[in-house]
Amino acid sequence: MRLAFMGSPDFAVPALRALHAAGHEIAAVYCQPPRPAGRGQKEQPCPVHRAALALGLEVRTPARLKRDAAEHAAFAALGLEVAVVAAYGLILPPAMLEAPRIGCLNIHASLLPRWRGAAPIQAAILAGDAESGVTIMRMEEGLDTGPMLLREAVPLGPRMTTPALHDALAEIGARLILRALAEQPPQVPQPEDGVTYAPKLSKADGKLDWSLPAPALDARVRALNPWPGTFFQHQGEAIRLLEAEPAEGAGPPGTMLDAAGLVACGTGALRLKRLQRPGRGPLAVGDFLRGFPLPPGSVLG
């Protein structure tokens, strides 16, 4: 099938590789433009860009699409049967949604209509959902509102993290999009009830509020690492908390209860397990505390 692939982050790479391996004719790959990254702030292509080049595919990186008639015409000129979209990062205008014969199919990392929006993986973990999954949907102008073609669920264990769920859903999405193209299943409208939204995350979302219950803070650590990351303030430094778990304990929220990294929360306590100071590498809590003591009675911000 002649198609365009539109995606940017690691989540989209397995789908691109699966489509290529299955013999689909990928006329062009659209992804976000290269952006400055690393200490030298040198422009770096996104993961899909790198994967597409390795496969010898044409890559297009428009900075915008909404009012760019030339981009709309160039997309239409590809003569596509379908476009496959996976975490592309730009909103497709009607002219592009309508250009492929079959339409634009989106690989969405949730069981729609739950968690429409930009951060469905993190939202499912934050909310303590029992399951997540992937939905293949036909795109329309609304935010993740289009009819569904396929869905597959995956259970969320009590210690699920965003990296683990991300990788599992990326592989499911790659498998489901191949099925969707091969089988072309009937389109089913999304239910009108049960709609929730997962807004785009920012660095401010990672600031830990010790007045929350320990299970909620634990979920936040598991959901928001590696990005935007969870952190607390102490002695003028923003300390990243990379791993933790709920534990028994009580005291004023944010107070260190022992010398081994137990912090009082609004309800219960959180055992710190892996931390990182600015400009330093991650350390297990014992190694971290030898270089940056947090004695009992210390109050974390």
Rank of each mutant, 00 (worst) to 15 (best):
R280G: 11
P228E: 01
G266N: 00
I239E: 04
A260D: 09
A238Q: 13
S202L: 14
L212F: 00
A204D: 14
W210D: 02
H234F: 12
D218S: 09
R271Y: 08
A216I: 06
A219S: 14
R271V: 03
E237A: 15
G249Y: 09
L224N: 13
K273I: 04
V221G: 10
G249H: 09
L257Q: 13
P282E: 15
G206V: 11
G279D: 03
R277V: 00
L212M: 08
G236T: 04
V221T: 15
L275A: 02
A250I: 01
L241P: 06
P213I: 00
E248D: 14
S211F: 03
D209R: 12
K203N: 12
P246A: 12
F231R: 11
L242R: 12
L224R: 13
C265V: 00
G249E: 04
Q276S: 05
P252Q: 14
P253M: 03
Q235G: 08
E248S: 15
W210L: 02
G266V: 01
A284L: 15
A204Y: 13
F232N: 02
T267C: 01
P282D: 14
V263D: 06
M256T: 12
T230F: 02
G229F: 07
E245S: 15
D209F: 00
A264G: 04
V221A: 11
A223H: 06
W210C: 05
P228R: 06
A260E: 13
A244L: 03
D209M: 02
A244E: 02
A284C: 10
G236E: 09
E245T: 12
R222G: 10
S202Q: 15
D218H: 10
T255K: 11
L270S: 00
H234L: 12
G281L: 11
S211C: 14
G268V: 03
G229I: 07
G254Y: 07
P246N: 09
R271W: 03
R220E: 08
R240A: 15
E248W: 04
G254S: 13
G279K: 06
S211K: 15
G261C: 10
P252C: 04
D258E: 12
G266F: 00
L275G: 08
L242S: 07
A247H: 08
G249Q: 04
R240D: 15
D258S: 10
Q276M: 13
L212S: 00
G229M: 08
G206Q: 09
A284T: 12
K273E: 14
P253N: 11
R271I: 03
A244P: 05
D218G: 13
V263W: 02
G249N: 11
A284W: 14
F231T: 08
P252I: 04
G266I: 00
W210K: 04
A247Q: 08
D218F: 07
A260W: 07
A204P: 04
R277I: 03
L212V: 01
G249R: 12
A259M: 05
A247G: 05
L212G: 01
L241H: 07
S211D: 14
E248Y: 05
G279H: 10
G268N: 02
L242K: 12
D218V: 01
L262R: 05
W210F: 15
R220T: 15
C265T: 00
A247N: 09
L241K: 11
A204C: 00
T267F: 02
L270E: 01
P226G: 09
R280L: 02
R277F: 04
A223N: 13
